[in-house]
């Protein structure tokens, strides 16, 4: 018995089941359909980033405007309150003084 000859016989090349090349090409085609080109992915990423930044900027502007409006309302309220306080002071000072 010659082991090396036996191994050569046992370990010879093997043909895969019929249609192997076709199955490889099918996998390549499937992969190509799923895989978008690099420029497409870059463009999609840019659009997404643009939308995110735009959304954030809009959100900031809206918040700023709301803040301004709230500030305006507080100032108006304080002005009104100040006038009321001034009026009340005048009324208090006039207590005890003969009214014309």
């Amino acid at each position: 018995m010659n082991l090396e000859n036996d191994l050569k016989r046992v370990l010879r090349r093997e043909s895969p089941p019929a249609g192997f090349a076709g199955r490889v090409l099918e996998r390549i085609e499937a992969e190509q359909t799923h895989r978008r080109p690099v420029w497409w992915r870059a463009a999609a990423a840019s659009v997404t980033l643009g939308l995110l930044l735009g959304g954030y900027a809009t959100h900031r502007v809206v918040e700023h405007r709301r803040g301004e409006a709230a500030k305006e309302q507080i100032l108006t309220a304080m002005r009104i309150a100040g006038e009321k306080v001034r009026y009340a002071q005048q009324e208090v000072q006039q207590i005890g003084t003969p009214r014309p």
Binding site: L11, R12, R13, E14, S15, P16, F20, A21, V24, L25
Partner: peptide, 10 residues
């Protein structure tokens, strides 16, 4: 693929 499938598959 057909040229080398026997080697690779083997």
């Amino acid at each position: 693929v057909e040229q080398h499938e026997g080697m690779v598959y083997g």
